[in-house]
Design a protein around this nucleic acid. Sequence first.
DNA 1: CTGTTAGCGCATTCAT
DNA 2: ATGAATGCGCTAACAG
Lengths: 399, 399
Amino acid sequence: MTVTLADVAARARVSPATVSRVLNGNYPVAAATRERVLRAVDDLDYVLNGPASSLAAATSDLVGILVNDIADPFFGIMAGAAQTEIGGQEGTGRAGGEKLAVVCNTGGSPERELTYLTLLQRQRAAAVILTGGALEDPDHIAAMTTKLAKLADAGTRVVLCGRPPLPGSDAIVASLAFDNRGGGQRLTEHLLTLGHRRIGYVAGPLERTTTRHRLEGHLAALAAAGLRDPASPDPASPGTERGEGYGESPGEGRPGHEGREGHEGHEGQEGLIVHGPYSRRAGYEATLELLRRAPDLTAVVAANDTVALGACAAVRDQGLRIPEDVSVAGFDDLPFSVDATPALTTVRLPLYEAGARAGRLAMGTETPPPGGIATITAELMARASTAPPRAAGGRGPAD
Amino acid sequence: MTVTLADVAARARVSPATVSRVLNGNYPVAAATRERVLRAVDDLDYVLNGPASSLAAATSDLVGILVNDIADPFFGIMAGAAQTEIGGQEGTGRAGGEKLAVVCNTGGSPERELTYLTLLQRQRAAAVILTGGALEDPDHIAAMTTKLAKLADAGTRVVLCGRPPLPGSDAIVASLAFDNRGGGQRLTEHLLTLGHRRIGYVAGPLERTTTRHRLEGHLAALAAAGLRDPASPDPASPGTERGEGYGESPGEGRPGHEGREGHEGHEGQEGLIVHGPYSRRAGYEATLELLRRAPDLTAVVAANDTVALGACAAVRDQGLRIPEDVSVAGFDDLPFSVDATPALTTVRLPLYEAGARAGRLAMGTETPPPGGIATITAELMARASTAPPRAAGGRGPAD
DNA sequence: CTGTTAGCGCATTCAT
DNA sequence: ATGAATGCGCTAACAG
């Protein structure tokens, strides 16, 4: 029923080995012979048996791209870029060095992350790209470290994209880390420069590196402005008890979430930080909470653009205007951010470029940065959603 | 170096066959023996060799999910739902019936679609889910039909999600089609009921089923209202010459696109239809064009929510207000649509539910609908971006 | 440049 | 309920 390499060999009157060689193209074959083989392949409509090939070669052409939330363009853009770099070159549909770039959605769950890695390991994947922030739970870090080491041992190339390097992991080909801390700092500095002093912060889920770094930047800017004791303990640092259910935020389809409060007590900014998932809804509810706690707030910084959208909605629903009454800022500069009204002030991350670079690194077509680590800069995009605060006094409701 | 089934068998003092049986769980094994084997697996940290397993069993645990644009939540939501249904059950990380659900980004390119299918075929994928609208090019349809037939022949379960059934393809397990036509019709009826008579339409790329069906619904509503000759030829029907570059709209990273004009000449609505990619930018430029052609326009219907966002921006940039001067409507009801200002009137598609169902169909855990075909209804979501047109006369610029 | 020979690691007959 | 034997389809030495 199914046509094999041997069938092709017979039709082309060559040995199976020769057919294998022309198909893999990694060995010299006479042009005439190649033609004959290729014709036989076409005639017979032959399709290589991947598993057999992978078994014999002890490696497959599978490349896995892990994302935390496939419904979030933040990941979609990176994954798409990587996939383009990996699988997009030929359009023949014929056999050849075609890699199969696939994306796997962990939904932010550490278990699923590990499970996918095992599945990819089982497939003897050629490479794995991990995108987005990591969970800072010590157990999970340990599990990930050993798992990635095993993958690397088995010949799988591991690349991190938008995720900080794993300490002591020489197994990793390269880590492309976003400068979330610097971006967060510049964003808050921008607000401070505009004159804001009471700034609410809607942070992401606890124990995520992305959350922590952006928040650190924010706090550093506040401290530099004398609004906070720089000696305060770091927020959301490893070792903190697991936030109840945070970090498990699955993408869609889970209504009913309520933004809960997280760490508090930063001097001078008491209660101005609320944690929640990276969702529009969390942004909405956390902002309502912030506005209730601190009615004198003049600005809200959100964990990312999606959260910022929710924050904007909450601000408006309270009858306040953006940016006249309250400034709002996001992070990532996703495509829709410029279309928000007013256009969202945010921090641009070169997601496409980073994803593409990760793809090349995974393919081995780009040399890794020195030390295997590169930090990707985040650029402030000051737009219309932020403006100087109203000169003291009460605010008038919009309209 | 790498530990095999035989190693586990030796450690557990059983035969390799027994180990295989407990791992696959599809054969009776004594409880005590199973325990011993499982312990050996753990001790040795054994990971099944996927390719070897697939080769011997002539099938793999790979399930492919094809999407047109991974950076678009429309696809992300469906793919994430399907993936949850397929791979999300166990968190053991251990071996077992774990399927590997992966998403493949075609970027809307027919070649890449075929290439991915070949790659999946090569891997002997257990199932394939095709999401989103199809291209109506006859050659491509033929190629897809034979390719899918081959996949089905090889035992791969094929499911269509958000895509119309392929004519004469009994190879397909099930087709879940969205009622794009009905949704489009109800949307335009809504506008007509509000009193609009001059309605611009920013259509999607030519030759996409989604584009055609939504447009057909629009035109049907117009015809029913006597605004168009019902006997007019169908728009964007197969056989039309390929639109220059349309249908190839790659996701991100390609600035510089200009919305070009498409079919025209529908009686009574001359030039009120413009085609372009499903992007925010296309919506922006097409709307500018529509406004230029027909300054008396009172409403703009967009191909989808993303395009609608661009349309909103264009309307505003012309100094017009939404909905006072121009109503704007989208399609899909993506999460961000309710956050637009004003909230976007659109047509809701149950993307998560459809994706989840497709996942179950692919797994064989849900019985296919009668005839293998189900139509999923689209619900009108009337929100603030649409309102009755101004009573005749010129419009005043906003502000 | 091409053919021959051996496995790759596992699932599955068949026996028992 | 378990073990022994066979082959899945291909690649990679090794010859020539």
